[in-house]
Amino acid sequence: MIAVIDYGIGNLASITNALNRLNIPAVISRSISTIEKADCLILPGVGAAGEGMRNLQKSGLDKVIKKEIIKGKKFLGICLGMQLLFERSEEGNVECLGLLKGRVKKFKRERKVPQIGWNQVRIKNAELGIKNKLFNKISDKSYFYFVNSFYCTPEDKSLIVGETEYGEKFASVIIKNNIIATQFHPEKSGILGIKLLNNIIKYFSLHSL
Protein backbone atom coordinates (compact mmCIF):
# COMPACT_ATOMS: atom_id res chain seq x y z
CA MET A 1 0.00 0.00 0.00
CA ILE A 2 1.17 3.49 -0.85
CA ALA A 3 0.53 6.25 1.67
CA VAL A 4 0.30 9.80 0.35
CA ILE A 5 1.25 11.93 3.32
CA ASP A 6 -1.34 14.54 4.22
CA TYR A 7 0.32 17.41 6.01
CA GLY A 8 -2.32 20.05 5.52
CA ILE A 9 -0.92 21.36 2.26
CA GLY A 10 -0.31 19.85 -1.14
CA ASN A 11 -2.34 18.85 -4.16
CA LEU A 12 -3.32 15.53 -2.65
CA ALA A 13 -6.20 14.73 -4.96
CA SER A 14 -3.98 15.18 -8.01
CA ILE A 15 -1.65 12.44 -6.82
CA THR A 16 -4.40 9.98 -6.02
CA ASN A 17 -6.18 10.79 -9.31
CA ALA A 18 -2.95 9.92 -11.16
CA LEU A 19 -2.41 6.71 -9.15
CA ASN A 20 -6.06 5.72 -9.74
CA ARG A 21 -5.43 5.90 -13.46
CA LEU A 22 -2.73 3.28 -12.97
CA ASN A 23 -5.00 1.21 -10.70
CA ILE A 24 -2.44 1.58 -7.93
CA PRO A 25 -4.09 1.58 -4.51
CA ALA A 26 -3.13 4.52 -2.33
CA VAL A 27 -4.43 6.15 0.81
CA ILE A 28 -4.14 9.78 1.81
CA SER A 29 -3.14 9.73 5.44
CA ARG A 30 -1.72 11.64 8.37
CA SER A 31 -1.92 8.65 10.70
CA ILE A 32 1.45 7.58 12.06
CA SER A 33 0.49 3.89 12.15
CA THR A 34 -0.69 3.95 8.50
CA ILE A 35 2.55 5.61 7.48
CA GLU A 36 4.56 3.04 9.42
CA LYS A 37 2.67 0.16 7.81
CA ALA A 38 2.82 1.48 4.22
CA ASP A 39 5.22 -0.07 1.69
CA CYS A 40 5.89 3.26 0.06
CA LEU A 41 5.47 6.89 1.04
CA ILE A 42 4.75 9.84 -1.22
CA LEU A 43 5.34 13.34 0.08
CA PRO A 44 3.50 15.58 -2.36
CA GLY A 45 4.11 18.93 -3.87
CA VAL A 46 2.41 22.24 -3.54
CA GLY A 47 3.20 24.51 -0.64
CA ALA A 48 5.68 26.69 1.18
CA ALA A 49 8.70 25.14 2.95
CA GLY A 50 8.11 26.90 6.27
CA GLU A 51 4.45 25.95 6.50
CA GLY A 52 5.28 22.42 5.30
CA MET A 53 7.92 21.82 7.98
CA ARG A 54 5.77 23.38 10.71
CA ASN A 55 2.85 21.12 9.80
CA LEU A 56 5.06 18.03 9.76
CA GLN A 57 6.54 18.91 13.15
CA LYS A 58 3.20 19.74 14.75
CA SER A 59 1.92 16.25 14.03
CA GLY A 60 5.24 14.51 14.70
CA LEU A 61 5.30 13.28 11.10
CA ASP A 62 8.78 14.70 10.52
CA LYS A 63 10.30 12.14 12.90
CA VAL A 64 8.22 9.29 11.50
CA ILE A 65 9.16 10.06 7.90
CA LYS A 66 12.84 10.30 8.84
CA LYS A 67 12.75 7.04 10.77
CA GLU A 68 10.97 5.19 7.96
CA ILE A 69 13.30 6.49 5.24
CA ILE A 70 16.37 5.60 7.30
CA LYS A 71 14.91 2.11 7.81
CA GLY A 72 14.79 1.81 4.02
CA LYS A 73 11.15 2.49 3.21
CA LYS A 74 10.60 3.50 -0.40
CA PHE A 75 9.95 7.18 -0.68
CA LEU A 76 8.89 9.49 -3.48
CA GLY A 77 9.20 13.24 -2.90
CA ILE A 78 7.52 15.60 -5.33
CA CYS A 79 8.42 19.30 -5.67
CA LEU A 80 8.29 20.61 -2.08
CA GLY A 81 8.43 16.95 -1.01
CA MET A 82 11.84 16.79 -2.71
CA GLN A 83 13.07 20.05 -1.20
CA LEU A 84 12.14 19.06 2.36
CA LEU A 85 14.57 16.11 2.15
CA PHE A 86 17.54 18.48 2.27
CA GLU A 87 19.16 20.28 5.19
CA ARG A 88 17.87 23.81 4.84
CA SER A 89 15.70 25.93 2.52
CA GLU A 90 16.14 29.58 1.64
CA GLU A 91 12.33 29.72 1.54
CA GLY A 92 11.68 31.16 4.99
CA ASN A 93 15.22 30.06 5.96
CA VAL A 94 13.89 26.87 7.55
CA GLU A 95 15.62 23.73 8.65
CA CYS A 96 14.29 20.74 6.70
CA LEU A 97 14.44 16.97 7.26
CA GLY A 98 18.16 16.76 6.55
CA LEU A 99 18.06 13.28 5.01
CA LEU A 100 20.17 14.47 2.10
CA LYS A 101 23.10 16.84 2.26
CA GLY A 102 22.58 20.12 0.48
CA ARG A 103 20.47 23.25 0.40
CA VAL A 104 17.43 24.60 -1.34
CA LYS A 105 18.05 27.86 -3.17
CA LYS A 106 15.93 30.47 -4.89
CA PHE A 107 16.11 31.12 -8.63
CA LYS A 108 17.85 34.34 -9.51
CA ARG A 109 15.54 37.22 -10.39
CA GLU A 110 16.74 37.50 -14.01
CA ARG A 111 13.91 35.21 -15.02
CA LYS A 112 10.30 35.16 -14.00
CA VAL A 113 9.87 33.47 -10.66
CA PRO A 114 8.17 31.10 -10.03
CA GLN A 115 9.11 29.01 -13.01
CA ILE A 116 5.72 27.83 -14.20
CA GLY A 117 5.30 25.49 -17.13
CA TRP A 118 6.77 22.66 -19.16
CA ASN A 119 10.53 22.24 -19.22
CA GLN A 120 12.90 19.55 -20.42
CA VAL A 121 14.61 16.93 -18.28
CA ARG A 122 18.03 15.84 -19.43
CA ILE A 123 18.90 12.36 -18.22
CA LYS A 124 22.37 12.23 -16.66
CA ASN A 125 24.61 10.13 -14.44
CA ALA A 126 22.09 7.33 -14.74
CA GLU A 127 23.48 3.80 -14.69
CA LEU A 128 22.02 1.64 -17.40
CA GLY A 129 19.78 -0.23 -14.95
CA ILE A 130 18.26 2.96 -13.59
CA LYS A 131 17.88 4.40 -17.05
CA ASN A 132 16.12 1.30 -18.31
CA LYS A 133 13.71 1.12 -15.42
CA LEU A 134 13.08 4.69 -14.37
CA PHE A 135 13.18 6.25 -17.80
CA ASN A 136 11.67 3.28 -19.61
CA LYS A 137 9.94 4.66 -22.76
CA ILE A 138 10.78 8.22 -21.72
CA SER A 139 13.23 9.87 -24.06
CA ASP A 140 15.98 12.27 -23.07
CA LYS A 141 14.85 15.92 -22.96
CA SER A 142 11.18 15.07 -22.48
CA TYR A 143 8.93 17.80 -21.11
CA PHE A 144 7.52 17.75 -17.58
CA TYR A 145 5.49 20.30 -15.64
CA PHE A 146 7.32 22.52 -13.16
CA VAL A 147 6.00 25.04 -10.64
CA ASN A 148 8.85 26.20 -8.44
CA SER A 149 10.69 29.23 -7.16
CA PHE A 150 13.31 27.15 -5.35
CA TYR A 151 15.55 24.26 -6.37
CA CYS A 152 17.73 21.68 -4.62
CA THR A 153 21.51 21.69 -4.71
CA PRO A 154 22.62 18.24 -3.51
CA GLU A 155 26.20 18.12 -2.19
CA ASP A 156 26.63 14.72 -3.81
CA LYS A 157 26.13 15.45 -7.51
CA SER A 158 26.02 11.75 -8.34
CA LEU A 159 22.46 11.64 -6.94
CA ILE A 160 21.28 13.73 -9.88
CA VAL A 161 19.80 11.60 -12.66
CA GLY A 162 17.75 14.35 -14.28
CA GLU A 163 18.76 17.93 -14.83
CA THR A 164 16.82 20.95 -16.09
CA GLU A 165 17.77 24.46 -17.06
CA TYR A 166 16.00 27.64 -16.03
CA GLY A 167 18.59 30.40 -16.18
CA GLU A 168 20.82 27.93 -14.35
CA LYS A 169 21.00 24.14 -14.35
CA PHE A 170 19.33 22.41 -11.43
CA ALA A 171 18.55 18.90 -10.20
CA SER A 172 15.13 17.81 -11.43
CA VAL A 173 15.32 14.07 -10.60
CA ILE A 174 17.43 12.51 -7.86
CA ILE A 175 17.87 8.95 -6.62
CA LYS A 176 19.56 7.69 -3.51
CA ASN A 177 18.92 4.10 -2.47
CA ASN A 178 15.24 4.01 -1.44
CA ILE A 179 14.63 7.70 -2.19
CA ILE A 180 13.44 9.08 -5.52
CA ALA A 181 12.47 12.72 -5.86
CA THR A 182 11.38 14.98 -8.69
CA GLN A 183 11.27 18.76 -8.76
CA PHE A 184 8.52 18.64 -11.40
CA HIS A 185 5.06 17.16 -10.94
CA PRO A 186 4.81 13.75 -12.64
CA GLU A 187 1.15 13.62 -11.58
CA LYS A 188 0.51 16.74 -13.69
CA SER A 189 2.77 16.02 -16.64
CA GLY A 190 0.28 14.39 -18.98
CA ILE A 191 0.63 10.82 -20.23
CA LEU A 192 4.43 10.94 -19.92
CA GLY A 193 4.17 11.89 -16.26
CA ILE A 194 1.80 9.00 -15.58
CA LYS A 195 4.30 6.73 -17.34
CA LEU A 196 7.12 7.98 -15.12
CA LEU A 197 4.99 7.46 -12.02
CA ASN A 198 4.35 3.90 -13.16
CA ASN A 199 8.08 3.39 -13.78
CA ILE A 200 8.88 4.67 -10.29
CA ILE A 201 6.39 2.29 -8.68
CA LYS A 202 7.80 -0.60 -10.72
CA TYR A 203 11.36 0.40 -9.87
CA PHE A 204 10.51 0.35 -6.20
CA SER A 205 8.90 -3.08 -6.21
CA LEU A 206 11.73 -4.58 -8.25
CA HIS A 207 14.14 -3.37 -5.64
CA SER A 208 12.36 -5.09 -2.81
CA LEU A 209 12.87 -8.54 -4.36
Binding site: I9, N11, V46, G47, A48, E51, L80, P114, I116, V147, N148, S149
Partner: peptide, 9 residues
Protein backbone atom coordinates in the same frame (compact mmCIF):
# COMPACT_ATOMS: atom_id res chain seq x y z
CA UNK B 1 -3.12 31.97 0.69
CA UNK B 2 0.50 32.38 -0.43
CA UNK B 3 1.84 31.82 3.08
CA UNK B 4 -0.20 28.69 3.50
CA UNK B 5 0.16 27.10 0.07
CA UNK B 6 3.13 28.80 -1.58
CA UNK B 7 2.83 31.71 -3.99
CA UNK B 8 3.20 29.37 -6.97
CA UNK B 9 -0.31 28.15 -6.38
Amino acid sequence: CANAFGNQC
